[in-house]
Amino acid sequence: MTQHEAHDHSHDHGDHQHDHTGHDHSHAPTVTAGNERVVLIGFALTFGFMIAEVIGGLLSGSLALIADAGHMLTDAIALALAWAGFRFGRRPSDRKRTFGYMRLEVLAGFVNAVSLFALVAWIAWEAVGRLFDPHPILTGPMFTVAVIGLAVNVVVFLVLRQGDTEHVNIKGAMLHVVGDLLGSVAAIVAAIAIYFTGWTPIDPILSVLLSLLILRSAWSLFKNSLQILIEGAPSGIDVEGMPEALADAVPGVAGVEHVHVWSITSGQPAATMEVRLVPGADARETLKAVKAALADKYGIGHSTIEIDFGDTGADCSLRASAGKGHTH
């Protein structure tokens, strides 16, 4: 008996028939290896320049530069977490972790968002202090380091764009880099303004404006990753209208109840539901049709469907369905 044949079996559970379709828990996004590579490159570039920017910020006395260096530090941590998430996410499932380690990628994205909140709070605190107690700023080193930082951030951003830009961790890393890029621009503007006018308050003011942009991006990332962690419905999927849509799309379906839709990880929606059949409907064919409708209309390739035969008189003889998934 082959491994596939060993999974192709069915059980009669009283008045209900259970179909666990698409139960390939070990699968990971096809772009995971590419994501892992670009994130690792981004980490090396970000961490390397972060050290130089910390030194430049301390020598020049620029809060904007130090804030940007702090942001690059959180970027480096975020990229390291993302890399670890991709690395562990590719591990196969086992008896204790039947979905594998893919959820670690989402957890890393959540940590990224929280780190951004902490960064914004730190920048705001330092900016207020600088407004009341201005520090002298060396515009030469500040300008030079900021320009180099801008170039590094552009390179890292282009590298990350080679990965899956819709993935929660790649998107989170790119948000970090965009914040860094804006931080470098702010530092350049501040250096030029201070050089020509001597007005040092522009440095903490630009830092606060930058933190507001970072806060907006962080909130979006926080909501998206938290939605996955609490197993909320993926955006773009109308769970409320799903029962009616499936009943209209599949002739053998009389009704759909107990619908639950969530994401295993970013881009991996899953669903469970109970389907009632119309009298005389072929259960096996109806099952395949529901599965196809979920994949085509909602992009759900992993579904667990319970067939409630009741007294419909439907053909209750189910065999292992060919193609995607298996009946259980």
Rank of each mutant, 00 (worst) to 15 (best):
A292P: 04
N224K: 15
V253Y: 11
G109E: 05
G310N: 08
P243T: 02
L40I: 03
G34Q: 08
S321M: 10
I237P: 06
K288P: 00
L287S: 07
L104V: 14
I188Y: 05
D248G: 12
L40T: 12
T2I: 08
E274R: 15
D8V: 09
I188H: 05
H9Q: 04
L277C: 08
V120Q: 03
T98Y: 05
V145A: 11
V168L: 15
I148D: 06
S62Y: 06
L81Y: 09
A44G: 03
G109M: 07
L160D: 01
A314F: 04
H4Y: 05
S303Q: 00
E240S: 08
G255E: 13
E244R: 14
A193N: 03
Q3M: 01
P279N: 02
A121R: 00
L65F: 05
L209E: 02
E105A: 12
S217G: 15
E274K: 15
F309R: 14
F49P: 02
S266D: 03
V253P: 10
A173G: 09
P243F: 04
A82L: 13
L131A: 05
A289R: 06
Y195T: 12
P269R: 12
A233Y: 07
D315Y: 03
V152Y: 09
V253E: 11
V152L: 06
A121G: 02
P136E: 14
S235C: 10
H176G: 14
E244T: 15
L229F: 11
V120C: 10
I148K: 01
A69P: 09
H27K: 13
T74P: 00
V145R: 04
H71F: 11
V154I: 15
G172E: 12
N224Y: 05
G255F: 04
W83N: 06
T30H: 10
A295Q: 14
L63E: 05
S321C: 07
F196I: 12
H7R: 12
S207H: 01
I205Y: 05
L182M: 14
L226E: 07
L158C: 11
G301Q: 03
G48R: 02
G100K: 13
S60Y: 03
F157M: 13
M1A: 12
A245V: 02
L277A: 11
L210A: 03
T304N: 10
S211E: 10
H4I: 12
S266G: 13
L81F: 11
A191Q: 01
H326G: 06
G57S: 01
S225I: 08
G280W: 06
V250T: 06
G179F: 09
A289P: 00
G241V: 12
A84V: 13
V259S: 04
H7C: 06
F86H: 04
T304C: 02
L221R: 06
G48K: 05
V168F: 04
G179E: 02
V189R: 01
H167A: 14
D282A: 10
I194P: 00
A121M: 02
A78L: 00
E36P: 02
A108Q: 04
A108V: 07
A84W: 10
P29Y: 06
M142I: 07
D296L: 00
G179S: 08
V178D: 01
A191M: 05
A281M: 01
P141D: 08
D308H: 13
L131W: 07
V114Y: 04
Y298T: 05
S220I: 10
I66G: 02
V239P: 13
G163L: 04
T312M: 03
